[in-house]
Amino acid sequence: MKNSHKRTRGILIALLCTVIAGLAFAQKPEVAPPLTPLTADGVHDPENPALPSLQNPEESMATFPKDRRGEVQWVESLNQGVITPRKFLTGDSGEGEELKELDLDIIMKNTAQMPHVRFPHLAHTRWLACKNCHSEIFIPKAGANPVSMEKILKGEYCGRCHDKVSFALWACERCHSVPHPGSPPKWW
């Protein structure tokens, strides 16, 4: 009787271990998952004879800083000097639009129960020229841009780049980063 009790307890502990291990692996890929090779990414033709000449993502991005979803953090990569992308076609000087770094945060407060959105100009102006966004995508005037998640999903406003080329909509906290009295504890 005592033995069977012990065995049941053992099995229960083992099951608990199973669930914990499963959850740990499923939800927190702290070790970034391997980057999809070109032959399996669903867009490159595996029969293309030139495919072996193209660089695989793993070769360049394996060590780049990643967010909790395992996506490359491009702004962080630039800030840390992991990458040194050119400012002009042939180097860091040349002909073309100037990169004017602007350290100005915009807080967007029309976010219902979600934390307010902090838009950092600085992170964006290290990559983009003013005219990339102003005034075609964003009117440079407070309150003049009725941004919503629906419009972003449709590819308007932030959605022109975000969720396509820059980080996706599933990392809520990267934009909704300013809690306010009406915002709930983090559930996402």
């Binding site: 083992a14 271990c17 199973t18 499963g22 692996f25 998952p33 999809t36 990414d41 996506e71 396509k164």
Partner: peptide, 27 residues
């Protein structure tokens, strides 16, 4: 038995990882 289940757990975790949608943030 505990060890067997723990290993099973690790394998289950890996399987779940493998089932996660393919990373396609390369744009």
């Amino acid at each position: 038995i505990k060890w067997r289940f723990s290993i099973l757990g690790v394998l289950a975790g890996l399987a779940l990882l493998a089932m996660a949608p393919a990373k396609a943030e390369y744009a």
